[in-house]
Each structure stands twice: as structure tokens, then as C-alpha cells.
Amino acid sequence: MTVREFIEKNDLQIITEGDLEKEIDGCYIGDLLSLAMSRVEEGQVWITIQGNVNIAAVAALTDPACILLVDGRGIDEATKIKAQEQGINILGTALSAYEAACRLFQQS
């Protein structure tokens, strides 16, 4: 499934857009950046509630297919600009991390 298909199937909000044709391969859920840094793998959906600018740095280094902000969390303008510059897909949803991961598992 591509990021675009994942968005369409779950009515996710696009907060910043990079390459939406990236293939999704699994997910990692976590809000602690040092853990995410060592655990997020290329192509995964990184599910988090963390919306500060450092998520863009972690994503730029670990290459997830997208970041999914759950529980209706948003990001600030600085994060938006940085993520956009680096071509990172950041999506948003009111779903919980558990609900989002279950859907991803069922749809993959």
C-alpha cells in the first residue's frame, strides 16, 4: 500500500507532503525521539503524538514512508516548514495510535 492509498482509505489529513507514492512497510509507535531514532525503519509509518520540530530531523535520518500524528495532534509552523523542505510526509488523524495501527495492519 502506498502512502496515498493509506490516506484515502482512512480519510487522513495531509499536513505536509513529500512523495505520496512511497510504499508502506510496517509501523513503529513511539514518542521518545531517541527510541524512534533507533527503531523507525525505512518505509514504516511512524505513529506519534510528538509534533515538535525534532520529528522532522528524526524522519530525515530514518526515512519512514510518513509520520502519522494521532489523537488529533498538530504541529507548529516551524515543523511544517522544516518537514516541507525535507520532503517528509506528515499526516494527521483523530484516531488513536492503536486504532491507526490496527487499520494499517488490516489494510496491508
Partner: peptide
């Protein structure tokens, strides 16, 4: 609050 301070910094540096 920014998601740091998990006590994983130096251990990650050693690990990687």
C-alpha cells in the same frame, strides 16, 4: 517535553 531525556542518548551512541 520535546521527547528527549529518555536516557537513551549515550547507550544509542555506543550501540551504533
Amino acid at each position: 517535553e520535546l521527547g528527549f531525556g529518555a536516557g537513551m542518548g549515550l547507550p544509542n551512541m555506543k550501540k551504533y
